[in-house]
Simulated scan of single mutants.
Amino acid sequence: MSTNDTTAPAAEQTAEQVVESLRDLATQEAVLKLLAERVTAAQKDVKARTQRALDAAAERDGTERVVASLPTGEQVATISLRRGESGPVVVDEEALARWVRQTWPDEQWTETRLVRTVKPWKLAELVAQMEAVGAAKIPDPATGEVLEPPGVMWKPTRSRTHALTWRKGGKDATAEAWRTGALAAELAAITAGGDEK
């Protein structure tokens, strides 16, 4: 009888611990999910604002790099501007295909479907030639004449952006500043706000 008496409370205690542990895990998951959502939104916002500020600084005085520092003054990362790129973009493939066919009628660089298109390998080759020249133009290898194919424009192909590079020990120092509350002011906005609808 005494064995049964000691076993029952132990089983109940173990079940209660499992339930409590599941509750703790559920709470942690809910907190981390909310934190991840808020951090993602805050990161997107600050990245856009940083890009605008970097673009303005680069235009104003040529600044292309800024240091990220903790409230203590310790430098933990560098943010560097990455220039955008421009290149040839085919905006009217049918017009380009007609032009390729008319310019080089003896070559089999186009194919007819419902519309005429340039074969993918040749299109890649033409775009590479334009990239090499730095304009939506192609030098004719036979005549040397510079040709301007229709249906192609020189446009931005990748917008300017920036990259964050951690300094040695920067991640650990930032994590420690977070843990000790030194970044409380910087992180307050992330946890502020009500329920999303």
Rank of each mutant, 00 (worst) to 15 (best):
A173K: 14
A177S: 13
V127Q: 10
R158V: 01
A188H: 10
A175C: 08
M1H: 11
A26C: 01
T161W: 06
D140Y: 08
R82V: 15
A77L: 10
V31T: 04
R23I: 13
E59I: 07
R179S: 07
T143V: 07
A68K: 00
K155W: 03
A177F: 05
E111W: 11
P150G: 00
G151Y: 04
I190E: 14
E176P: 00
G134Y: 03
A10L: 13
G151M: 02
A142K: 11
E20H: 11
L70R: 01
K155I: 02
V76Y: 10
A58T: 04
K168P: 03
V67S: 04
A132T: 01
A41W: 05
R101D: 06
G169M: 11
A136Q: 06
E93A: 15
V90G: 15
R116V: 08
T161V: 09
W166K: 03
A175Q: 13
E111K: 09
E37T: 10
P88A: 06
W99S: 02
T63E: 15
T72M: 04
A185M: 04
K119L: 13
L183K: 07
R65E: 09
S86C: 06
E59V: 00
S69P: 00
R98K: 07
E94N: 13
T161I: 01
V46A: 14
E37S: 06
P71V: 02
A36R: 04
G134N: 01
A188S: 14
G169L: 08
A163V: 02
